[in-house]
Design a protein around this nucleic acid. Structure first.
Lengths: 113, 113
DNA sequence: TTAGTTTTTAACTTATTGGTTGAATACAGT
DNA sequence: ACTGTATTCAACCAATAAGTTAAAAACTAA
């Protein structure tokens, strides 16, 4: 589960983290601001944010005591590319799928662990 | 983590399971056929398949002793829809994002657990 | 230096995940 | 009825995840 795509999917597999991303899509925010809507400890939100950061979905910038979080599109583009290969499934056209799968042979760890 | 989107992301957060989907994109296969490439027990692959089935990513059909698995596009379309809202992020156009986010207020469990 | 704010770290708990092995189930063929 | 093949189930194990509380760290402002 150490490959980037798995890391990203795993980070997105939590509604709180997806909500944090949705909030950040509207502009950067501090950890406290991000935590405000939730009924959990700040430490818990801090951990969620670290998961997102480890997946590359957000970056951080310090300003005084504050750590401002900013959404990073890269991993989302990777997800988009992955699902894009299957998009043809519901469009009755398998050509691009085959191309993508052949290409994936190298990049995706299909046989590990 | 009980909402459908989380279930799907979580199912996709494993390279073995993504490889199984890639294999199924080329046509249905039995559990044994799906397990063949992997260096793990059949029971382990059987569990992976159940995870995919629980997420709705595959369906099954019995034929004699065999259980044939077939890829189901629905949850992939949901992922596509979710990431689609962010697609505008790397295209300098935030209108659709706002629309999707407003819409998501109802459907996505943002504040649960 | 002291006090307040913001965020992270550490230690802990509980639940889930991904794997194992061995037994059970389901069906086919002889 | 028996044997072989395909798949799942049950019990177990080790590692990870998601939360908690309490303490530490980083910075600001008097």
């Amino acid at each position: 589960m150490t490959d980037p795509l798995s890391l990203t999917f795993s980070a997105l597999a939590d509604p709180t983290r997806r909500a944090i991303l949705a909030r950040l899509a509207q502009g950067q925010a501090s950890v406290g601001e991000l935590a405000a809507p939730y009924d959990m400890s700040l430490a818990a939100v801090s951990k969620h944010i670290k998961v997102l950061e480890n997946a590359g979905l957000i970056s951080r910038e310090k300003d005084a005591q504050y750590r401002y979080c900013k959404l990073q599109a890269g991993p989302l583009q990777d997800i988009d590319g992955w699902v894009g290969a299957y998009r043809d499934l519901w469009r009755d056209n398998l050509d691009q799928l085959d191309a993508y799968l052949a290409d994936m042979q190298r990049s995706d760890d299909t046989n590990k662990q």
